[in-house]
Amino acid sequence: MSARRNRATVAVVGVGMALTLAGCGEGSGGSAGGSGGSGGGDDMPTIAFVPKLQGIPYFEAMNAGGEAACEELGCEWLYQGPVEADAAAQADIVRSFIQQDVDVLFVAPNDPDSMAPLLQEAADAGIAVGTTDTDAPNSVREVFVSQASTEGIGQTLTDQMVEAMGGAGRYAIVSCGETAENLNSWIEVQREYTASEYPEVEITEVVYAGEDQAAATQMATDLMNSDPTLTGLVGECTSSAPGVAQAVRDAGRIGQVATVGLGTPNSIAPYLEDGSASSSVLWDVEALGYLTVWAGMQLAEGNEFEATNDVNSDLSAVEYDEETKTLLLGPPLVLTSENVGEFDY
């Protein structure tokens, strides 16, 4: 009897421990960025950036761009994100940056709505706040640094797809999160633009694979099988872009089914090489990091943005939309087998 009770106690303690561990997994990961604060002797502004999650090549590239920019422009760069794309964990990190009293805070919010009150809190503490990569439109952010316009991405993807298909045919889209706002708005543009600009091209289906590469490959395989007349596949996010190309490669249908997508340079390069992917539409992620820091410096120094801004030699005409307070990085970047080697992320 008592042995059984002991076991129950152990079990309860065990549950507690397991839950604590789980909490750690989802909680604010890592210990980076502890050295911040504006109490230091020098008067370089401190610019902090909280990505959706840490440890994926996309945000690491933004980090690299931001770091380089701070070195050049003279600021202290802090970078820390959650280990999973989780709104609560991200909020904890934002709070810790507010407590460290940074000068400028940039966030790529996982959940724009729940981030808004926190940005208000930061602004109340005298911190200049902005969003980058993903906006929180109903917040007090002073600027949104946008990687590309929805139209720009959607139309470039469509143009690339149609060109790879030879001007006519049927293609399907393998998307990722079913509720991902940016992906869905790109798909909307693709539908409209395809219908209006390319009457001989038809989108057959849109399927959702989550962030699961293997699922994207399997779904692309199934789509090719169910419709032998399919000649194009779009991988709508960074995990499904190489996923659909892998499906074409495995099925031995390179040259019959063309693929394009939003793949990061390193992940898509092998597929551009053997032709299972025709091109990849993205933006220069390091430049986005650079532009974010530049915008942060303007906020810190109290400068207004011009309608067209000369940031540096590569970003000589960055447009600013006064009404939406949006800085636009520029037209999307098209990666092909020729230029993909120039990028390392």
Partner: peptide, 21 residues
């Protein structure tokens, strides 16, 4: 459930902060 988190931590350490390309 405990080792799920433990092993994942080990895995993330091995990954460092990037994907394997």
């Amino acid at each position: 459930f405990g080792t799920l988190n433990l092993f994942r931590f080990i895995g993330l350490q091995v990954f460092g902060s990037s994907t394997v390309e």
